[in-house]
Simulated scan of single mutants.
Amino acid sequence: MSTLEKIQLLEIPVVEDVRGNLGFIQKDVLPFEFKRVYYLFDVPSSAFRGGHSHIKQAEVLIALSGSFEVILNDGYSKKSFVLNKPNIGLYIPTGIWRELENFSSGSICLVFASDVFIEEDYIRFFSEFMDSKK
Rank of each mutant, 00 (worst) to 15 (best):
K56S: 14
V70W: 13
I118H: 12
V116D: 11
L4A: 07
R19Q: 14
L4I: 07
Y38I: 04
K27E: 15
D28W: 04
I123N: 12
V43G: 07
F112A: 09
L30D: 02
I55W: 05
W97E: 05
Y91D: 10
F103D: 00
L64N: 08
G89M: 09
V70L: 01
F48Q: 15
I118T: 02
F34W: 15
N87E: 14
A63N: 06
G89L: 12
L40Q: 00
N73M: 03
G66R: 12
D74Y: 04
F41H: 13
F117D: 14
T3F: 13
V43M: 14
N102F: 02
G66C: 11
I88E: 15
V37N: 09
S105I: 03
I12G: 00
L100S: 03
Y76G: 12
Q8K: 15
L100F: 09
G23R: 12
R49V: 04
I71P: 01
I123M: 12
R36Y: 03
L40G: 02
A47Y: 15
I71M: 10
V111P: 01
E5F: 05
I71H: 06
L22E: 10
L90N: 06
F41P: 00
F34S: 11
V82P: 02
L10D: 04
V29A: 02
K79N: 13
S67I: 00
V111H: 06
G23E: 10
I118S: 07
E16N: 01
E101G: 07
F34V: 01
S77P: 11
L30M: 08
K85R: 15
V14W: 00
G23V: 03
F48L: 07
I7D: 10
D121V: 06
P93M: 12
I88W: 00
I25V: 15
R49E: 13
L110V: 05
G51W: 08
D17C: 10
V82R: 14
S45F: 13
A63D: 04
T3W: 11
L61W: 15
W97L: 00
I96P: 03
A47H: 14
L90M: 13
S46F: 12
A58R: 13
E99A: 05
W97R: 01
G50M: 03
G75E: 14
E101I: 02
S105F: 08
A47L: 07
D42F: 07
P13I: 06
I123K: 11
F32H: 09
D115W: 01
G20Y: 00
G66N: 02
I88F: 08
F117Y: 15
I62S: 09
G23L: 08
K6I: 00
N102E: 12
Q57C: 10
G89F: 11
E33M: 08
I62R: 03
S80F: 02
D42C: 13
E120Q: 11
E5Q: 15
L61Y: 13
T94N: 14
